[in-house]
Design a protein around this nucleic acid. Structure first.
Lengths: 250, 250
DNA sequence: AACTGGTGGTTCGAATAATGAACCAACTAT
DNA sequence: ATAGTTGGTTCATTATTCGAACCACCAGTT
């Protein structure tokens, strides 16, 4: 990994739970030397990707992010399209829904989500973090529809065990992927976050290559087989809508 | 400038007019060696900041941008707040309005804008580019309310002459800044884009430090003194609203 | 007042990673 | 075939990143 990637990885440590991070905390997280981390943070700050509080000296995500997002969305409004459709999806199924896209071989990056508000108990996965391929419904379904070469590269990296239920056995996983490809959707039960069930359907880009997934997540207690069956058609409709609106963005 | 900053600068070449850029074009723009540029692009791609079209091999802004923007806005919803208020501002004054924030010493980064739709002829500045301090209304008003030390650093870098009307004489500029600080607003006539007049009012962060500006831009033909006077109060109301909503985001 | 442990930040020799001229490979048009 | 594109790679040279040790500051303890 080059210097650039290492620096950019610092940005991925920000989340809802941790919107501001100081130098020492960064050192603690990354394990790198303080001087090194500091130099990287300074360059990110000077480029506008971080904003440093003048008083507390802590860092948070900077204005350059917003600016680039505007450029991105005004030329390829992928996110806007996704948000619209998962809003209606959420209204129909009354559960948390999100759209995530492939981000290299590390996992899926969530670009839109709608938290369910109708239930008292609801899933609160922090979608601001990268979703691993092998432990989430979205990840599994993208793996299933991905090119074999890339699947091999990803599985070669090793399978992190997030919970007791995370599937880390390669043969079973490969069988699971075949089954997912046949059925057209994936289901994951507590592999990433305990008691959370996810159902996901693949998304494709303009060249029919798998680009990501739409998923619904819910507490396992609420997601009976019947409910699941009722959600699936809605998921597929949402996926079609997003696929269609993404075709124009070549 | 370090390697990280050089790589990140590649991202700033994307704009509405140029949403996709290939390797050769990047080499042409930057003047760096092809191998160097390619390595930087690859790292940005692998980190998710660029997406490479599998067919055309051209690069465009990637999903990591959207992800970070979500994290940023869900912890510090600065942009959302800004968008709301400039929408009403736009309805009231019927001209293009935008909010830009300080991005280091290079200029201002626009984080929200509303294009005016009521007039046939309207300003179309590409707000996706960095606004220079000395040549725009937003830039001038932030300079006027910025700390002297930083002002000196910025003016030291030299003043680019964008149009025949760009003010590049230091003494006049400094006098102009004093006058702006007294009046509380700035006005710029065709200094960055010909025939465009801008009026801007400063924004402050939680420590009362100048953080950016709200501005209205219009064709000079339409912006008579009377119209200008009528716009000012609306601008100040908008600035107050944004300032207030930003206070909580320390 | 000195000590302790916590911030953020800097220095400079040593180690490492970025650099760029030359080179492929594929495609298009002449 | 030739010449001019495109994107991408190699490898010896060079310049940059790296990191142990350092400073300055602040808050609470002894």
């Amino acid at each position: 990994m080059g210097t650039i990637a290492k620096a950019l990885q610092l940005l991925s440590h920000f989340s809802n739970n941790q919107p501001e991070i100081g130098l020492s905390r960064f050192v603690q997280i990354t394990g790198d030397d303080k001087a090194t981390v500091h130099r990287r943070l300074r360059e990110l700050r000077d480029s506008g990707f971080l904003h440093q509080d003048p008083v507390s000296r802590a860092y948070r995500l900077g204005p350059a992010i917003s600016r680039l997002e505007i450029v991105k969305e005004s030329s390829f409004p992928a996110r806007r399209a996704a948000i619209e459709t998962i809003r209606t999806l959420n209204r129909e199924v009354s559960e948390t829904a999100h759209v995530s896209v492939i981000q290299g071989n590390v996992g899926l990056s969530t670009i839109a989500y709608v938290d369910d508000l109708s239930h008292g108990i609801r899933v609160h996965v922090d979608v601001n973090e990268i979703l691993p391929y092998h432990a989430t419904a979205s990840g599994l379904v993208t793996l299933a529809f991905m090119e074999d070469q890339q699947v091999d590269d990803i599985l070669k990296q090793g399978l992190n065990k997030y919970t007791a239920d995370t599937q880390t056995e390669l043969p079973q996983l490969r069988a699971n992927l075949r089954q997912i490809r046949n059925s057209g959707y994936s289901r994951s039960q507590g592999g990433f976050e305990l008691d959370v069930v996810g159902i996901a359907v693949p998304l494709f880009d303009h060249r029919k290559k798998c680009a990501g997934a739409v998923a619904v997540a819910a507490p396992s207690s609420r997601l009976t087989d019947d409910v699941q069956r009722s959600i699936l058609p809605n998921l597929k409709i949402a996926a079609n809508a997003i696929n269609e609106s993404w075709q124009g963005l070549t």
